[in-house]
Nucleic acid binder design. Structure first.
Lengths: 338, 338
DNA sequence: TTGTAGGCGTTATCAT
DNA sequence: ATGATAACGCCTACAA
């Protein structure tokens, strides 16, 4: 390993000059600076981050905690975080909490001391756990809000409203809304959106269905309940759920969008993947990750301790093939097998 | 920040005793150990990794470089890496190289000095670049082989053979194989598999199609060429490509699997997502990531410098709805519009 | 069994 | 403008 000492020896200066020449070039004579630079290049000197971090009391690393890396939602957020962090000179420790709040708490505790700050995607964790995390490290929440903790999230209420508005415009008179995990933050924001839509449109019937897993299987399970409500359109909790819905419907011979329209949420890459691309509520997920890094970087700037900012990113509707005009006749419930 | 000094003061011992009590409990009197432990717990002491790393000359962190985190293939590998690394006490820096070999080289160079080793998913990088990386750090390759560098990969040739065997068993007489990126390692292994299958089955016609992007759009673009060959079955480079194929075929009114069978590759979670779940060649992607960590951890164990091991994981076929008996009649090429 | 002391590589302070 | 030195927190010979 090449150290400042090696560079100093080759350049014929002291280690302090080397350090300065590299960190604050203007405080060193041009000729000296050039010699140091040359020596450093020749030797392939790279500062040891552990050492400078030890000295400076920071690590230049941040931690990102997500519930599931295989969920395309978090994959995109991670991608955004990663790109912006690189630009900001921060390394990113990524950990997958396996959708387990306990594991997540452990990870936060072990990650906190070895990073300058944490980015948390914690849809299920309760407020107390999040506050505890915020007490251990600088924390920025992603798609979650807790009083006093900086956060970036999507305007889910508005997104939900947009989706319902869209379905109403297509002539749907009854819309089923499939719920996500009960205690999840975005589930509650979505409920706000439903409430607002219900208040605005008295010609529209919105039926909320109980909690289903925010994965393909959840949608698969919710499909029958959705159809049984007599709704001609279904709003899923996310894109994966929407795909599960479509699949179960197809299995029952119910066509999307001819018989039933389906709307997803998040516009993850899977929305455009299926044979019938999903109409969905879009959020800039990479942008969300990038913004979270910006917030954290601000917090880390020495002397900065601003009031916990809350950024709310807009939601917009992306119309694709999975929604169409409401059918003239309701889908008949298939006869119960004898 | 709580340091050994704080713990030592509270426990009424010296810092070396604290260090020992925590690292080598058996070398400290039981009573002393208990007092130290109590003090450490009370204060919430956590060793500073920068400091111990500096001292020990290692970081206890590894780097994982992937071309695209949003690609479900790498998402799964990352998940596997992450879980096993946690178990091994290693933190993981994850970086996304955005499918750019130059960026990837930069990332490797900047990651190498701040980690104990690197896990590289570099399908496109040429051998020289990989060897250069291996010169800068301990490296384990994932799904790639380069002489002298430890690696974990899938038996693509066998997987390809299995897929073709399956299609032949269904009565398909002509199979189109869609190529992935030309210079990719797995593309060449797959070509080996095709060669072997061709040798084995003289009643089978295998048509290889040129390079297409290993994404949905690549499959979408390859579909027409595949149909034009008169093949009744298509083997895609990966699951995403297979989904793109299905979608374009559906757009042309060609049904999967009734008219054309489609086989994916990798069994990423998207394979089970579509309305017509994909028959695909399965590899344990998380296991691959986990194995890569094991290999790297072995390499890191002091004194160990084994001959670069190469682990080849088996490929197996998962049959789902996207493959069926060959149709009696070939799909007629739709008449060219006047 | 326990304590003392030195050094890992860097940077900041203080002299020169 | 440059150099000597101390200190960040930890670990470990070595001494007691």
């Amino acid at each position: 390993m090449v150290t400042v000492h090696d560079v100093a020896r080759v350049a014929g200066v002291s280690i302090s000059t080397v350090s300065r020449a590299l960190a604050a070039p203007e405080r060193v004579a041009a000729a000296t600076r050039a010699r140091v630079q040359a020596a450093a290049d020749a030797l392939g000197y790279v500062p040891n981050r552990a050492a400078s971090g030890l000295r400076a009391g920071r690590t230049s690393a941040v931690g990102l905690v997500v519930p599931d890396l295989e969920n395309p939602y978090f994959a995109s957020v991670t991608k955004g975080v990663q790109a912006r962090a690189r630009a900001a000179g921060l390394a990113v420790f990524v950990v997958d909490a396996e959708e387990d709040p306990h594991l997540e708490a452990d990870l936060v505790a072990s990650l906190a001391p070895q990073t300058d700050g944490l980015l948390l995607c914690s849809p299920r964790q309760d407020d107390a756990a999040v506050r505890d995390a915020a007490g251990r490290a600088r924390v920025v929440l992603v798609n979650r809000e807790v009083a006093g903790v900086p956060s970036v999230c999507t305007d889910h209420a508005r997104g939900t409203e947009l989706a319902i508005e869209h379905l109403r415009a297509l002539g749907h008179a009854r819309v089923a809304v499939v719920g996500g995990p009960e205690r999840s933050w975005s589930q509650e924001r979505r409920a706000d959106g439903v409430r607002r839509a219900v208040e605005r449109f008295d010609d529209l019937d919105v039926v909320e269905l109980g909690a289903y897993r925010p994965h393909v299987d959840g949608g698969y399970s919710a499909a029958d309940a959705a159809v049984a409500t007599g709704a001609t359109a279904v709003l899923a909790f996310n894109d994966l759920q929407a795909l599960g819905l479509v699949r179960r419907l197809a299995g029952r011979g119910i066509r999307v969008p001819d018989d039933v329209s389906v709307v997803g949420c998040d516009d993850t890459f899977v929305a455009g993947l299926a044979a019938t691309p999903l109409t969905t509520v879009r959020t800039d997920l990479r942008g969300m990750g990038a913004t979270a890094v910006d917030l954290l970087a601000d917090l880390l700037r020495p002397g900065n301790e601003p009031e916990a900012p809350r950024v709310v990113l807009p939601a917009e509707l992306v119309v694709r093939a999975s929604t169409a005009d409401a059918p003239r006749v309701l889908v008949p419930s298939p006869a119960v097998a004898p």
